[in-house]
Amino acid sequence: MRKQVLYSIRSPYRQPMEVTGFKFGSGEKAICIVGAMRGNEIQQMYVCSQLVKRLKELEREGSICSGKEIMIVPCVNYYSMNIGKRFWTMDNTDINRMFPGYDLGETTQRIADGLFKEIQGYAYGVQMASFYQQGDFLPHVKLMETGFTDHKDMIDFGLPYAFVRTPRPYDTTTLNYNWQVWETKAFSVYTNATDHIDEASAKIAVDAVIRFMVKRGIITTKVTGGSVTEIVDERGLIQIHSPCAGICKSHVRPGDEIRKGDLLCEIIDPLEGEVISRIFAPVNGIVFFNYNRPLEFEKSVLYKIISI
């Protein structure tokens, strides 16, 4: 393993922030995995740290294929992580909205540029991504549709679901989108946590990335076959919105199979305790996402259902 500072930035009041990459093997740039770009993406950093640990073992065993280079960048924005802030410390900008970056631009544009120069040219790119909506969901892999990456490649992660997202204007400055513009086949892997560590889903993500690397001829090791992957267009998810605000008491969890008419949740008046609304499943399906905060607003997305 080779440890390398990919980009460094100075602060007048802190030690320099050194974005560090861990390289395994040498030769063709095979795959790059990027973890936390936001200060609250602790799970995403943890998954990468576990990958570094596994790859050290695999390297000792000689299991990294000849002529293949792997790079892992566990944490890009630890300045924010160390002070409990989600976006950039000073101006609150989001590094994952600054790609491909600009070396003469603003601070986060420079960080994005410095990082992107180092992580370009890999055949595959995997970002450990986080959801902006608060909730629990099934671990999955997602592809931003640009026409460059084949949807079927996602099957090799062996996760039960793979989503295809049609990019919106604000997606065009993300790492995933720009990786593909610069001809890296890019995927985002989502686990069921962001600002805390969920061991079970972290293990699922680590196994999925290891499985992908095995199937793509980057490493050799024994892996389980994983799940049969269903590829879903993200627009086909059925979203269930809250008809009113209050305290949400859910009766189902991600992964639960539900029948049309099943009770999904009750909404309770936060001051009087009465049930003011009951939400029932509109279709037969699998719960993919459920909102997990006790307080919810009117029109909050409470569930996303994969129809079956």
């Binding site: 605000a245 209050g246 607003f297 009117e298 029109k299």
Partner: peptide, 11 residues
Amino acid sequence: SAGLAVNERIE
């Protein structure tokens, strides 16, 4: 407008 969690609406 939309309902906020506790006894208030955003307007």
